[in-house]
């Protein structure tokens, strides 16, 4: 059964101290994914409130070092969202993103992170619902994995 992702608000009020609130950082490209996230808002699609978005012009701007920095600062998950492969506002930027993220996944694994803590997703400006689904699913994935194994120091 493939259930449509639903977020109806966290049960039991606004979160007690005992349950884990993952820290998720989301990089969105300006033209597609950020617009898709806006559309999710316009459509009032509800999703968990644990992610914080950083807007960049193109997903290809997401430097591997940003991802490392995020994990170093205690992020439990990092999501990079860009235009669908053929839709890139900057022609082919997101093809590079795809390659970089594949490498990054290998890299973070070497550091002892579950590679699933980093996700790349294509979200177009018309896919508010896909943005919602991605956030819900990724939040669940990160919740299941628990807090980041990183404890500070290098």
């Amino acid at each position: 059964m493939n259930s449509e992702a639903v977020h109806a608000g966290s049960h039991g009020g606004d979160g007690g101290s005992e349950h884990f609130e993952p820290k998720i950082l989301v990089f969105c490209c300006n033209w597609c994914s950020y617009a898709g996230a806006d559309l999710a808002g316009v459509s009032r699609l509800q999703m968990p409130p644990y992610f914080r978005t950083i807007r960049v012009m193109c997903s290809a701007r997401v430097d591997p070092e940003f991802v490392i920095r995020a994990f170093e600062k205690g992020a439990d998950g990092v999501l990079v969202a860009g235009c669908h492969p053929a839709d890139c506002h900057y022609i082919g930027g997101n093809y590079r993103t795809r390659r970089r993220m594949a490498l990054m996944k290998m890299l973070i694994q070497q550091f002892g992170f579950d590679p699933d803590r980093l996700r790349l997703e294509w979200v177009s400006a018309g896919e508010g619902e896909k943005f919602q689904k991605t956030i819900i699913e990724f939040t669940n994935t990160v919740k299941e994995m628990g807090p980041t194994p990183y404890k500070g120091g290098v």
């Binding site: 059964m1 493939n2 259930s3 449509e4 109806a8 608000g9 049960h11 509800q46």
Partner: peptide, 18 residues
């Protein structure tokens, strides 16, 4: 919300809160 069971007939479930 919609759920996709196997086959061609989606089903729906009431979202309880919100």
């Amino acid at each position: 919300s919609m759920e996709h069971p196997e086959g061609f007939t989606p089903t729906y479930r009431t979202i309880e809160i919100g």
